[in-house]
Amino acid sequence: MSNTWYLYLFFAAALVFAGLLGLLAKRNLIKLLIAIEIVGKGVSLLLLSTGLAKAHILTAQALVVTYIVIEVSLVATALALIINIRRQTGGLDIRSLTRLKG
């Protein structure tokens, strides 16, 4: 069991790191949200694999379902914010938001 757990942890860490790199490197707001989604995928894979390795798969499943519901709400709110930013600044560049500073 611990051998397969190691594999899942390896891939979950790779997903989280890919998302973090995307967050650091990209400037498009929609790309940044996609990177956040990928970090979330890594975390849910980590939760379920830990549940599988420690024989708590049902609790882990309940947590992942909760996370998915929260993710949908987060994405809807963030996309609405992005549309409003596009209306205000005329672009999707994250650097255009520096104009907000006091």
Binding site: I34, S44, I57, E71
Partner: peptide
Amino acid sequence: RMGAPYAGVFEISVVAGLITVLF
């Protein structure tokens, strides 16, 4: 395949479906 069908159903229907439509 990990034995978590409910999480799989939510992932495919909600994340692959609804969030993609929103994007």
